[in-house]
């Protein structure tokens, strides 16, 4: 099984409506792409993505997603000083669940392991 990694610039998604954005991401992930978005998703978009994912799981070739947001160093520093703020500057990775394992440590290092 092969996967591609798609790096999606913010210009691709910034004008999409809530639903179109979720569909844009999910369509790619179902077609076995690991999507790296330049923008962060809002909590509502993340929740909507999870909800939509549940409706698309077929227990054959799609068992769901992995969703991770990457915190910038600046965000991590502010988090240390002031606690987590919800307005974090991040990029977001959405991958087919069986394609990768994603580990994030307390220093903010994100490590993606590709499954074969």
């Amino acid at each position: 099984m092969s996967f591609s990694v798609d790096f999606v610039p913010s210009t691709e998604t910034q004008d999409l409506s809530y639903h179109d954005k979720i569909n844009y991401i999910l369509t790619r992930v179902i077609q076995r792409s690991i999507v790296v978005l330049e923008t962060s998703l809002t909590p509502e978009e993340e929740m909507g993505l999870i909800e939509k994912t549940m409706k698309h799981i077929n227990f054959k070739d799609f068992n769901g997603i992995r969703l991770v947001s990457f915190d910038s160093g600046e965000t991590l520093r502010r988090t240390k000083l002031f606690g987590r703020s919800s307005n974090t500057r991040t990029f977001t990775i959405v991958a087919p669940n069986d394609a990768v394992s994603i580990l994030k440590d307390d220093r903010g290092i994100l490590s993606i392991k590709f499954n074969r």
């Binding site: 909590p43 509502e44 919800s86 994030k104 307390d106």
Partner: peptide, 17 residues
């Protein structure tokens, strides 16, 4: 477990919103 599971942050973000 490691507390950095995205699901926790997604839930919290929605509660805040």
């Amino acid at each position: 477990k490691h507390p950095f599971d995205q699901v926790n942050f997604t839930i919290i973000g929605n509660l805040e919103a």
